[in-house]
């Protein structure tokens, strides 16, 4: 891993992923003033960023690592207890750092105890 061995195949892939990311993130923005986004659509997508965050977070908490579906859910999952502890801590302290520390502490304790 110490020598500079850049595989050209991987470099093309990285370039491609960069372009695809730029394309998706500016998908409608590229169209410029040719398109007017209707007001109802803007109303609707207000919920999109919240939903995206939730959709990224919730499976991390409720689905075991490596599992492919909710059927593998069980209460011995340390993630659940760490997640609940984090939500409670954040609700009361409103502090990121304490949320992270207590959430990780409960998660770690649950891994050893359950």
């Amino acid at each position: 891993m110490s020598t500079i061995d850049l595989n050209s195949h991987i470099l093309w892939l990285i370039l491609g992923m960069t372009l695809v990311t730029a394309w998706t993130r500016s998908f409608f923005l590229i169209l410029g003033e040719r398109v007017r986004v209707p007001a109802w659509l803007l109303e609707a997508i207000r919920f999109a960023p919240l939903a995206a965050m939730i959709a990224i977070l919730v499976p991390e908490i409720f689905i075991p690592a490596g599992a492919t579906s909710i059927s593998e859910f069980n209460l011995k999952l340390p993630n659940i207890w760490g997640g609940i502890a984090a939500v409670i801590t954040f609700y009361f302290t409103k502090k990121m750092l304490s949320t992270l520390i207590i959430g990780m502490a409960v998660f770690t304790a649950a891994r050893f105890l359950l």
């Binding site: 892939l13 491609g16 992923m17 695809v20 990311t21 394309w23 998706t24 993130r25 500016s26 998908f27 409608f28 923005l29 169209l31 410029g32 003033e33 398109v35 986004v37 659509l41 803007l42 997508i45 999109a48 960023p49 995206a52």
Partner: peptide, 23 residues
């Protein structure tokens, strides 16, 4: 790359919101 596009679909929705401000 197809996977990258699919995983990034939420950004396509977000780009509608940006379009309204920065077209």
């Amino acid at each position: 790359l197809v996977t990258t596009f699919m995983v990034n679909l939420r950004f396509v929705i977000f780009s509608l919101g940006l379009q309204a401000h920065f077209s």
